[in-house]
Design a binder for these strands. Structure first.
Length: 135
RNA sequence: GGAGCGGGCCGGGUGACCGCCGGCCGCCGUGAGGCGGCGGGAGGAAAGUCCGGGCUCCACAGGGUGCGAUGGUGGGUAACGCCCACCGGCCGCGAGGCCAGGGACAGUGCCACAGAAAACAAACCGCCUGCCGGGCUUCGGCCCGGCAGGUAAGGGUGAAACGGUGAGGUAAGAGCUCACCAGCAGGUCGGGUGACCGGCCUGGCUCGGAAAACCCCAUCGGGAGCAAGGCCAAGCAGGAAGAAGUCGUCCGGCCCGCGAGGGCCAAGGCGACGCGAGGCGACCCGCCUCGCUUCAGCUUCCGGGUCGGCUGCUGGAGGCCCCGGGCAACCGGGGUCCUAGAGAAAUGGUCGCCGCCGCGGGCCUGCAAAGGGCCGUGGAACAGAACCCGGCUUACAGGCCCGCUCCUCUC
């Protein structure tokens, strides 16, 4: 499989609840502004994947969809520069205003630095509790 | 021209590049899949999830009580709490609008504040009569106070005070009586499918509001939901508790008897009663089904495993046009079109051009701070399908069309 640098097929997305739980369990994260990024090395390494978590507290369906689209587009742009062989989860924190029309560039830059920081962090003790942080 | 009323409709357009979801075709690949091509991809409310249906599973003798919903009449519809027409009441000069619009002589309760009194009436002031006491007197009476009684005409309170006007009547008054009017009840006639409308007669003369207080009446209503339901794959570990049978009969075998018949036996069929469990929407009556034990099975409880894939899944009470029926909602017939199917959940990003709306002590035209054009700059609402329809409700920048009413102006 050789997806182009610009594409973002379904195989680059985290889809299953089990995948999400695995990434959360590693407990490596970095946060800035409205975003929190969790990272986990893949076993075995494959293509870089991303999962999105946008809570109902963020806004109504239109606002949540806008966030997801912006984050997917940002991920599509910076995916080639991210640490390889990792899964990432991006959580949008509530209580912060939406970035305006020019927010895509900032979101992409923020996503890139946060992903690098999270992946470079030493792996924390895998969480024993089943409870997933956030929602 | 201004003010307004009622309907209907739109919800930026177009192009390039980079992406996403699913469909069809071709090629490659054992396969998962990949590549290429073609065409499709949010709304008028997709929203709230408030009603009504379809669909799926479960249930489906009946009766009573309860619960919920609805509430003028007639129609429309698959159905409705929706829509249409009409009736009645209220509001508006009008076009039109609003109404949770059955029953308040079935019953219980309520009517704040104010007021004497808020509903089998009632006497605060006032008015009138009688008696007692006091004062004045022109000796006719008059005034003040008290007591007993009459009185719903007048005052005052209130959202609301037990009909209105006039006449008679009276100590003063009162539907107390009478005339007319309003209203109510009963009867009757006529019109209308009906809600109702109109006329006549009689009655007592008069009965307040609120049913969105409880309630009564009528009508309607099985339960749960696409996480319904079906199929496949994978995987695990079981444990505990619970019950009550008895009798009759039939068939079979054995024994006794010459025989009619009698006795014994284990398992079974049927029936009765009993017990247990489940179902019949909640409860009761009642009914149905299953079971009544070695194990097994059943029911309940605890524990363990999975939480993947396919399907349901989008063509439908469907949209548009024409003809016919109907005041209309809508119905019938013909033609034509195909229009999203995700599942941690696609429909996005960037850049042009055009259109719309602002802003500009920028430019041009122009007598002009009017209008128009150019340039620059900014903005564009409410909101995202999740099984599918019919409604209702709520949100919404900006804009378009049609019909009608009132006022004003010009001819």
């Amino acid at each position: 499989m050789t997806p182009s640098d610009q594409g973002l097929p379904k195989t680059c997305r985290l889809v299953r609840p089990g995948d999400f739980a695995r990434v959360y369990a590693v407990r490596r994260s970095a946060a800035a502004g409205p975003l929190v990024v969790y990272a986990a090395a893949q076993e075995p390494p494959g293509s870089t994947r991303i999962g999105l978590s946008v809570s109902r507290r963020i806004g109504n369906a239109v606002v949540r969809n806008r966030w997801k689209r912006r984050l997917r587009e940002a991920f599509r742009r910076v995916r080639a520069t991210l640490p390889t062989g990792h899964d990432f989860i991006v959580v949008v924190r509530s209580g912060l205003p939406e970035p305006g029309a020019a927010g895509l560039e900032r979101t992409a830059a923020s996503l890139e630095t946060l992903a690098a920081r999270a992946a470079a962090r030493p792996a924390g003790e895998p969480s024993r509790s089943r409870r997933r942080p956030g929602s």
